[in-house]
Design a protein around this nucleic acid. Structure first.
Lengths: 193, 193
DNA sequence: TCCGAATATGTCACCTGGTGACAGATTAGG
DNA sequence: CCTAATCTGTCACCAGGTGACATATTCGGA
């Protein structure tokens, strides 16, 4: 990575942190992009050169997740049941991500702001599509081989529901409960055939 | 209902039909509110007096559904398992709604336009919250009495996933398959404990 | 039938998120 | 140090909404 790319990424991270702070304090809708820009010492136009939309200042680059999960899913053993694959990959992902105070603030913000939540769900939907495609194209024999579109949709949507419920419960516990455990519990209760 | 309210509702329905037609033809994002307004022979401002947002011209008044489902849910027998209650109510609802060509067009539009889909999910999320509250406040004994917040969230989110998957499969079949049957299938496969 | 009050509409100005275009400042890297 | 790539600000603009105010329409009662 070149120096320019690194500085750019650093500035972006700084801007995201600033924006998150301001949004958490004064509310997402109530805070203007112009205000964030001026607090960061730059113009609205320049700020929009770092983030495509206002929502992205909070959500960050979550589009990478879908692709990564899809790749990990492809690496799972052939015979494994798709639901089990999803559980392993998502729980593993969950264990790797830090459940910091910043994450709590961000998720709370997302949960409370409808516009933000809508964007967030949209992101997850894109990821879900990718993951469903992986499940459909699965090779090999056994229960999880080459799912039809309906089954792939149902399983991935259910996994999304599990994630969502685990997140909300985590928020209710003020970040005290273990996210991986919550997710495992949700996956276990939902046991699609 | 007074005459004014009736005419207002009629005009609203006419406007919604016009908007749906225009959006289906030229795309949702590509069609301006001003264009719809002028096609309807009124100003942008007046059009916005019939619909709070552009998206509502397509989605209509879906907020009534959440409340109605919640009410029906409250009327289910005390001992019934919550998942079964959800299945019965939602499938019953599905059987009552006409699966017309217009509905197909609307759902296709919603599925294809990200902004529209986001709004739609948001609506369903509001309904889900209401329904989860009903499940939590359930009286009586048995498996479904007084669910904790996590269980209520998980079950309602899973029901949402079932609805979503059934809808997408219905769209893939060009409206040929039976929505109630698809929904029943989805509910049966997802069998949370 | 006519009048007053409620309601619908149009117009205008304005805000916010977002984008294209262009000019000038900055800086990486040879 | 020089040049080319990049960053930045400014300005104009678009689309979705909203508030305010004036005007027209229409409903319901006298």
């Amino acid at each position: 990575m070149s120096l320019r790319e690194r500085t750019r990424a650093a500035v972006r991270a700084e801007l995201a942190a600033l924006a998150l702070e301001m949004f958490a304090e004064r509310g997402f809708e109530e805070t203007t992009v112009d205000e964030v820009a001026r607090a960061a010492g730059m113009s609205k136009r320049s700020l929009f050169r770092y983030f495509p939309t206002k929502e992205d200042m909070v959500l960050g680059s979550a589009e990478a997740m879908g692709e990564a999960v899809a790749a990990e899913l492809r690496a799972r053993p052939e015979g494994e049941a798709p639901w089990e694959s999803l559980r392993v990959v998502l729980c593993g992902w969950e264990e790797r991500i830090s459940s910091s105070a910043e994450r709590l603030a961000r998720l709370r913000l997302v949960e409370e702001s409808p516009a933000l939540h809508a964007r967030w769900v949209q992101r997850r939907e894109e990821a879900r599509r990718e993951i469903a495609a992986v499940l459909r194209e699965r090779a090999g024999a056994g229960a999880g081989a080459g799912l039809d579109a309906f089954s792939a949709d149902l399983l991935t949507s259910a996994a999304g529901a599990a994630l969502e419920s685990a997140t909300r419960e985590w928020l209710r516990s003020n970040g005290q409960k273990s996210r991986p455990e919550l997710l495992t519990e949700a996956f276990t209760r939902l046991n699609p055939t």
